[in-house]
């Protein structure tokens, strides 16, 4: 099996699907000739031409709105928003249009579109190249929200997203883009949307995370293991639809949950997971559910490493719930 970074795995998925399905088209800012600012679409413009790999004018609403129209007409568009920090001009098209089209037309019109966008900190990008806006979108009925944490999952989940009959927001953690290399299956490799992944099994406490925070949890778990604390790690993988069953099963086993996410604490998606645990697993809980998160501040530049949850902060929370 070839070893790939997440960027390479995404590139591979796009190529595999564009070769397989002539309805698949890419559009976005700098996705064509340049191959994307992170190189996710490198080489595709050359292979598939400017009709299928389109450099668009600089307009996020335009990219997503036009992709919706293309999907209505029968294409399978994969739109790129260069950074999720710049997705807000397209918020309306995503929330009001793509996500509601099937429902409001009783299934007469559907939007099988994928929006790819990099999320999260870790590249010293300051306010506008670092944020994690998944919670805004998880709050939108009709939209799936997928966040891979490894190259292999990125490929498998992206193929599943492109083939999904509904709009999918595919959020790619920049923290992982080039830092993690692993074996990725060649050719066909689909990972089902809606299934969480047990990254590490353990019996004392469940760490729940997605995207760039899964790796942080692994580092924290390794530290805790040295201290005799056995962490289980769940990679949520798909925020919508959420695999509650896997999360509940784990927490019922360990009796303790620490939820880790990069976004500001208040209103973050981890709050939703916490509520589900309170609703459905309270009698199994041995300790309060804790959240390790970004702060309720704009994403900072110089103090990024303090803002982002890191293994030390996660370990502190683990100790708290274990000693509770």
């Amino acid at each position: 099996m070839p070893v790939m970074t997440m960027v390479e795995a995404i590139n591979d998925a796009l190529r595999v699907e564009m070769r397989r399905d002539p309805r698949v088209v890419l559009l976005g800012e700098d996705v064509g000739v340049k191959g994307g600012v992170f190189g996710c679409s490198a080489g595709l413009w050359k292979e598939f031409g400017g009709d299928r790999v389109m450099d668009t004018p600089l307009s996020e609403s335009g990219i997503v709105g036009a992709a919706i129209g293309m999907a209505l007409y029968g294409l399978v568009p994969v739109a790129e928003i260069q950074f999720s920090d710049f997705i807000y001009p397209a918020f309306d098209q995503i929330v009001s249009e793509a996500a509601k089209m099937r429902y409001r037309s009783g299934g007469e019109y559907t939007v099988p579109m994928t929006i790819r966008t990099p999320i999260g900190g870790g590249i010293r990008g300051g306010h506008y190249h670092s944020q994690s806006p998944e919670a805004y979108f998880a709050h939108t009925p009709g939209l799936k929200v997928v966040v891979p944490s490894t190259p292999s999952d990125a490929k498998g989940l992206l193929l599943a997203s492109i083939r999904d009959p509904d709009p999918v927001l595919f959020m790619e953690p920049k923290l992982v883009y080039r830092t993690l290399k692993e074996e990725v299956p060649e050719g066909e490799h689909v990972v089902e949307i809606g299934k969480a992944r047990v990254v590490r099994s353990g019996k004392d406490v469940t760490l729940i995370a997605w995207g760039g925070m899964v790796g942080m949890c692994e580092k924290a778990a390794a530290k805790c293991a040295e201290e005799g604390i056995d962490c289980e790690i769940i990679d949520v993988r798909t925020i919508v639809p959420l695999d509650e069953a896997t999360i509940l099963e784990s927490v019922k086993k360990t009796g303790r949950a620490v939820i880790v996410y990069e976004a500001p604490k208040t209103g973050g998606f981890g709050g939703e997971i916490s509520a589900i645990l309170a609703e459905k697993a309270i009698e199994w809980l041995e300790a309060p559910i804790l959240r390790v998160t970004g702060f309720d501040t704009p994403f900072p530049y110089t103090l990024e490493s303090v803002y982002l949850p890191e293994p030390g902060r996660i370990r502190e929370a683990v100790l708290k719930v274990v000693r509770f």
Partner: peptide
């Protein structure tokens, strides 16, 4: 299908035409 949101449909029209 029409939404209430003013002007969003114009981009759908462009997307349909591009497709």
């Amino acid at each position: 299908s029409m939404s209430s949101v003013i002007a969003t449909q114009l981009l759908h029209g462009v997307g349909v035409a591009m497709a």
